[in-house]
Design a protein around this nucleic acid. Structure first.
Lengths: 253, 253
DNA sequence: TTGTTCAACTTGTTTGAACAAGTTTATTTA
DNA sequence: TAAATAAACTTGTTCAAACAAGTTGAACAA
């Protein structure tokens, strides 16, 4: 069983979009998902859409850009914009991104639980600094959590957070959604996430918490998160259960 | 030793760009990589850049968008565009993409060799169709290759190509760069790549060709490539050597 | 019939303008 | 002094227009 995570992105929020292009993007996306625009078809021309949505061509093009980034359509110079959506994409849709574990999972209807197995503070030494890129001497929260989906251990996450930027953390908060706390309580917006996937041998901790039996290694997602000011405030190493691991991405030109 | 692959993207080509915004993007990128624009600094304002490059603000913004997608800068409403480049990114730069193995490797100065271990034709049956999404009955080239970097086996790739779209393939061509053949000989342009990373147990074939000893599983990159017409012409499963595997991506909003 | 030209589409690039909205600093007001 | 205001920046959104360039099909010419 592969849980489709790691694919809901920033734009997957439920807030009311204020920008015109965002609404147009969502409406066209909906029509693609509901097969009103069938795979292989061309979207109405930009001029048609301009009339239909009573906006400028630039606005249509910005909406279309999102669809391209999501791998839903593909523009063809001189011909039109073709739908290349495949039903198998439905739960893997992403526009360049990944976001909170809880959000994406709950959106998919999964039951999420979190077990906090470590919660301390520490100061970054040279070794840790080299690994995380936090400056030496930075005071950090050190949090280790096991994330469950419908009762099955999905990942073992080690998170380091700058205490000066994300104050007031408690194990209780960490047991819920860190993403939610950062965005809605602290009021800090996550703007950029740089991620890297590598393979690592499993440790005793992995074995213990992820209940990995069939594999001797695990995919590790290392991510560095930046806030509005361009400050790196979070570093996370997510060690995943190989059975349910899936990561999607779309490239285009 | 981690070879930095899977990160050179479409825009990493050497052709002369015709578009203004592309040149501006490349120039600013260069200044970031050479630390003329230091990490933490703000780029000159859009108005300044507009004057400097003698173009419109929209053109500057389009160039900046590429830098954002690449994780080099981050815009801050009302303040400016901040550089968030880190030296560790240098060989991992990507704008949403991945491209040919040979290109990216050779660009990094690695010596690439390819061993063709299988080259046949077949017709997609129901099982294969379900796996690849090629329509049942499609005639395909079936190619298996081992890719080496500086003499070390990096991946074992199984590629299926639509014969009607990519005709004239030979084992000799497959021993070189398929990407090159498709783009430059057939003249077909790759426009969209949909990828998915999962973990799979290693097979006898993996063991034999990738010389994997320390791991019992391998990261598999499944990719479906679309041409200008929105037709899927290639399906590839790339089984990677865990030791040298790395996959990078950037998310932003 | 066959090949060429041309007009009418399509998306791609660029410009210039205006206003919205977040940030900062200086100024004014209490 | 301290708070509120205003002005001058910044990026974000939207519009209208023009031209470049790829695609298609109808009209035309050989």
């Amino acid at each position: 069983m592969v849980y489709h995570l790691f694919q809901v992105n920033f734009s997957g929020e439920t807030r009311m979009p204020k920008a015109k292009y965002e609404n147009i993007y969502k409406e066209i996306k909906q029509k693609i998902l509901s097969h009103e625009y069938e795979s292989g078809d061309y979207l109405p021309s930009e001029n048609d859409l301009t009339e239909k949505y009573n906006c400028s061509r630039n606005t249509i093009r910005k909406a279309t850009l999102f669809l391209i980034e999501e791998g839903l359509v593909q523009p063809h110079h001189g011909k039109g914009v073709r739908v290349i959506y495949h039903e198998s994409q439905r739960y893997n849709l992403t526009r360049s991104g990944i976001s909170g574990f809880s959000q994406s999972a709950e959106k998919s209807g999964y039951r999420v639980t979190t077990q906090v197995i470590n919660f301390t503070e520490l100061v970054a030494d040279g070794r840790l600094s080299q690994r995380t890129y936090f400056p030496e001497g930075t005071t950090l929260y050190f949090i280790q959590r096991v994330r469950y989906l419908n009762g099955t251990a999905k990942s073992l996450d080690t998170t380091l957070l700058r205490k000066d930027l994300i104050p007031g953390l408690t194990p209780e908060i960490a047991a819920g959604s860190l993403f939610d706390y950062i965005e809605n309580v602290v009021g800090m917006e996550i703007r950029t996430i740089k991620r890297s996937i590598t393979i690592s041998h499993i440790s005793e901790l992995d074995k213990k918490y992820l209940k990995i039996e069939d594999y001797d290694c695990t995919p590790v997602i290392t991510s560095r998160n930046y806030n509005l000011n361009g400050e790196m405030f979070e570093y996370t190493e997510s060690r995943n259960n190989p059975d349910s691991f899936q990561f999607n991405s779309v490239a285009w030109r």
